[in-house]
Structure formats: C-alpha cells, structure tokens
Design a binder for these strands. Structure first.
Lengths: 361, 361
DNA sequence: CTGTTAGCGCCTTCAT
DNA sequence: ATGAAGGCGCTAACAG
C-alpha cells in the first residue's frame, strides 16, 4: 500500500538507518546523501508512519483537548484555537467531550493515555484529581478554566474574581443597588470566584449582601429561567441582573421576553463570556469577556513548554490568570435618572417602572 | 512505565501469544486460562497499547471528522454526536477544522491518513476530489452535508431542495409575493440546492423570479448584512426574507436592528438550520431545520457499515438524504391582512408600513 | 559518516 | 490448546 522507509532506502541503495537519519534530519549524514534521500523520498511519495515511529519513541504527535461540551461559546473558540496552534506544529488535536461528568472524564482520560497522547489540556470536573495526578507522571497536562484542587498541575484560569468584580462595579456605578446574581455551581472554581468578586464589589460600595438576590446553579439555560423568575417575583425585585453563568443567559432572556420586560429600560442585564450573537442582539448585550482565545493560547504555550522540558514533572508548576475585560454595549442603563434616550431611535415603549413587578405569564 | 502484555504473560506463566489470544478473545484458548488471564490482566492494570496493535493490524481506532468550523451550529451538534457515537464503540474522534479552505483540507487529509485513521467523515470543500478519491482506496470515507462531485463517495446530505421549498412555500402561503433570498455560494451543493428549492416554490405559485431579490454569498455574517441592505434599499423591497445561509443570519438581524425594522410586523424572517438561541430570541425565529443530529447519526451509521465491510471499495455507494422540517415560530406573519395582535401582549410600536424604506444609519 | 543489530508491544503463522 | 519465532515501520545504540 504505502511506501515505507525501506523502499526509500532500497531505491537510494543505502541502509534504512541511513535513510532514517537523513530524513529525520539529525545532521548525522553527509549533506549529499541527505539531500539525495530527501529527493528520492519525495519522488516516491514517502510518508513516515507515525504509528511505527510512536511505537519506538513513545510519542504519538497527538494532543488531546478535553472540554465539557461545544455549546459553550468559550469552548468553541478554545477548540478552534488549540487545533490551529497544534496543527501548525505538526500535532493533531484529539477533541473529547466530557459532559462535565466525572465518569466520562475518567473513561476518556484512560483512553487518551492508551493512545499515548503527547500532551493534554483539560477542563477538569474536579472529581478525578487522583487519576489526573497519576497521569501527569506520564504526560504533560495543563488544566484550563477550572482548577483541580486535588492536584498540583499547571493551570490556566480566567480571572473570575476580577471579572465578576468589574461587572458588578459597573452596575453599581450605574446606580444599581439591588443586583441579582445568577452564577455557577459553588463546587466549581469559577462559580465560587465569580460570587466572591460580586460580593467584594458590593462590600466596597457599602451595599449589604442579600442572599435572596443570589442564585447558584448548574450550567444550563434552565438555571437562568428558574432563577430569573424567582428574582423577578421578589417583592423588591432587582433593577439589574448579572448573569455570571454563561449557559444560563438564554434562560434569562426567555423569561424577560415572556414577561415583556424591556432591556435595559425595565431591567439592566450584564452577562459573562462573549458569544457572537450578543453583539448582534438587540439591544446589544454588555458582557464581561473572559478572554477565551487568550486562555487557549496560554494553555497551549504552557503545554508546549512542558512538552519540551520533558521529564521534570512538577518542577515549576504555576497557576496563570488571564485578565477579564468589561465590554459595555447596550443592555445596562443608568438608574436614578430618567431613562436616557436611545441614540439612533426613539422607540419608547411600555412600562418604565424602575423594576418590573411580577407579571402573569 | 505501563504494564505490557509480556508482564501479564510472565505473571500468568504463559507465553505472550497465549496471553494475546486470551485477551483478544479469539476463543483459541481454554476457558480456564482465558479467564485466568483476564483476571490477572485486570489485577495488573494491563491496558493494551493501541500503537503497537496498530502497527501490526494497520488500524488505529481513530476516526476523523473534518468540518469547516465550530461556529456553525450544525457542525457543533455533528461533532458532539459523532464523538458520542464513536466513543461508545471504542473509537476516538479526531476533530479537524478545515476552514472551508482547500489547502487546509488537503493538508489535513494527508496528516490523517498518516495517522492511519480507520474512517473519515468529511464535509468536503469540493476542491480536493482527486485526493479524496485516492484516499478512499485505503480508508472508508463518508461525505457529509456537501457532495464532492469529482468523487463517487458515499454521501449523506440534507434535503436542501425540499427544505428551501418548504420554507419558501410557507412564506408564500402567508401571502408574501416578494421574498428575498440570501443563500450560500453557488459553487456548493447546498447553495445551489437551496436556490433551486426557492425557485421551484415560486414557480409553482406562479410568482415570477426576480433576480434582484436573490443574493448568494460566502458563509459569513457580513454576507447577511450586505445582502439585507441591498434588499431593503430596493424601490420595492421584499416583505419577507428567507435567510438560507445559516451564518448570514446574524448579519441580517443587525441590519434590521440598525434600521429599526420590526419583525415580523415590518418584515417576515425565516432562517435555515436551528441554533439554540433562535428559540429564545424575541421574536422566536422560525426556521427550516436541516436535521443536523440525524445527518450526523446517519453518517456514522454509513461509515461503520463501510468499516465493517472492509475492502470492497465503491461497492454499493449511495447518496442519502435526511429530510428537512419547517419549524414555525414567531418571525413570520401573514400579509394582506392587518398585523395579527401578538398573543401575550400588545406592545405595538413604530412603523407598520409593509416594508421599511431605506433609512439612514 | 554509514551499515548492522536490536528491539518498541503486539499479533499471527507455524509447529508442537 | 499452547510456545516459539518472525515481523509490522521505525529509531537508536553499537560497530566499523
């Protein structure tokens, strides 16, 4: 079927080892035979067999990326970035979807090391620390977005405390005093950290924390819907909601639509992690950008670094943070003052009470 | 590092070949030793090395999926489906992103066969037919979503002629006579087929085709924005737009927002391929569903079939179609009659002229 | 600088 | 039913 190193060697009338040396470019051959071999190999259409090479070298030129899903916009761009970066370096990406499920994660991890991956970037569930720790002895690992507290792996995190702080402060500066927070599960790094940033901003502003305004839940739209309903049903509903649980955003939007709540006139909305359509949505949705692209790039950098410095395991393990940025668009408005006239139009409509009372659906 | 077959054999005091036979379950060993070997292997934590096995058998337990990007919602679900299906069967998915670029596609393809993938599902650009044809001799290939006309590979397509027809007819039935079409490049299967479906529906309804209403372009939001502007700038603008180019949708929405055009009051909008947020968007966007999930499942089925029936290359090559479905939501309205009162509310606003004239941005 | 010799871990004839 | 031996394609000592 395909032409092997032996074929090339025979065609060039040299031994396989010479051919191997010439083609891998170890510089251990005379320039003449080197070039000759390269030429012949090309003529014959020789392609080295990574499987055979891998058996010998223990490497596979395969790097795995393990994420929870592809619905989350951040994971999408991470996958694209990682794949692009790796391909440029001659690696293939093995994309795995773990569903944020410890069992699946565990299974996937073993399959991956079976395949002798050369490196792994993983968004850990946090429940397989022991396994990860073991694997880390054999293969360079970088944790992304979430930390696995049971390990001491190199980790690239978003600066969620800062991001949540920035977002909350923004809302406070706009005059909001009652700010609803819909945030991720508190057994995840990001969930905890975003809550802490929110709390800090509140404290600095001298606003008392009100736990009826805080909802933590799973990373699904339903969380957003349920939480939003509860928030809006309060006797004193919030004038702004900070949706710091990315996947919950759709649920929140559905509820505001169902109840005919105008954004930002009736309610200010600030979300976390950018998505393409946030910018095209009307009104354009203000967000805290977690820097998915930079996170992925940094993770690749760190992984490559560890792959180069092969062997020396936990030496110099570090935790990195990629700063968050506030991107102001049109979904948050100043309160305490009359609603500002929208720039390009004057479509003033419906209720303008500072916060919508619970309305029948 | 890891325990090999030899280790297991030694521990069991048998030869490696016996161990191999017992563990691969060829049934060529006595039940007793068989079970004993399995037990010992488990105790030792033995994991077969796919690399070594692959070198011998020529297989890798790797199946590749080559798509254009992960931004497109259909590709997202396809990736998730393919990965899930394959994992259940002990395969790993190699996800590659080709960017709809022939050069990248070509590079990727060679890398993939180097890695001795056991199968390939590819959304072809259409420009590498010769290469695909060659590869198909070595590895089972299924084309997805697009056909490569230069090959005779098994192909799983959406029923785009039908989908576009259904969508267009729906708009016609609502009374629309001037229906704008924003569609994909005409050098792609889907681009051509969706146009043809649109044309057929028009013809059946006795509506003359008007080429000023038809815009074909690249699969990017900008296409939607540019095309929408041109359509709305016409002296007789359309009363409905059928965005049969998935990625163009965001661009269209931006333009309608910029110009303060209310949907569906001022303009009916029908899109192609579902996305999670279409359903949550306000108004919920009616769509023609291409059946991404079923497409992926069928592609996997066909691929597995060919992988089983190894060898017999082009025998029984077939083209499959997965039917499209119209999903009516709230972005299209009846014309010729007064705008129907929206169900839950009465937020009547702004211009209600049948179609918005070009407005300054 | 080059050729010879060993394997990497596994499967598979071929004997027994 | 089991062992022994050879080889998949390649790299990495060893010699010369």
């Amino acid at each position: 079927m395909s032409v092997t190193l032996k074929d090339v060697a025979q065609a060039a009338r040299v031994s396989v080892s010479t051919a191997s040396r010439a083609l891998t470019g170890t510089g251990l051959t005379s320039d003449r035979t080197q070039q000759r071999l390269v030429r012949i190999a090309r003529e014959l259409g020789y392609r080295p067999n990574p499987i055979a090479r891998g058996l010998k070298t223990g490497q596979s030129r395969l790097v795995a990326l393990l994420v929870h899903n592809l619905t989350n916009a951040s994971f999408q761009v991470m996958a694209e970035v990682v794949q692009a970066r790796l391909k440029a370096l001659g690696y293939q990406m093995l994309l795995c979807i773990g569903g944020d499920d410890p069992q699946q994660e565990s299974d996937t991890l073993t399959t991956l090391v079976d395949h002798r991956i050369d490196g792994l970037i993983v968004v850990p569930t946090g429940k397989n620390g022991a396994q990860l720790k073991t694997l880390a002895k054999d293969v360079p690992i970088v944790c992304l977005v979430r930390r696995d507290d049971a390990t001491d792996l190199e980790t690239v995190l978003a600066d969620d405390p800062q991001g949540a702080y920035l977002g909350t402060r923004h809302l406070i500066e706009l005059g909001h005093k009652r700010i609803g927070l819909i945030v991720g599960r508190q057994d995840t790094t990001s969930g905890r950290e975003r809550l802490s940033g929110y709390v800090r901003a509140l404290r600095e502003a001298g606003i008392a924390r009100d736990d009826t305004l805080i909802h933590a839940g799973h990373y699904v739209p339903e969380t957003g819907a349920t939480s939003a309903r509860k928030l809006l049903d309060l006797s004193r509903p919030p004038s702004a909601i900070f949706v710091a649980n990315h996947e919950a955003t759709l649920g929140v939007l559905r509820v505001t639509a169902e109840r005919n709540i105008a954004i930002p006139d009736d309610l200010s909305l600030l979300c976390y992690e950018d998505m393409p359509w946030f910018e095209w949505h009307r009104p354009a949705i203000s967000i805290v950008d977690n820097g998915a692209r930079d996170l992925a790039n940094l993770a690749v950098d760190r992984l490559l670094h560890r792959m180069d410095a092969k062997g020396n395991g936990s030496e110099g393990v570090r935790e990195y943070r990629v700063g968050a940025r506030l991107i102001k668009r049109d979904s948050c408005r100043q309160v305490d003052t009359p609603a500002p006239a929208r720039s390009t139009k004057s479509k003033s409509s419906s209720s303008k009470t500072s916060a919508a009372k619970s309305a029948k659906v």
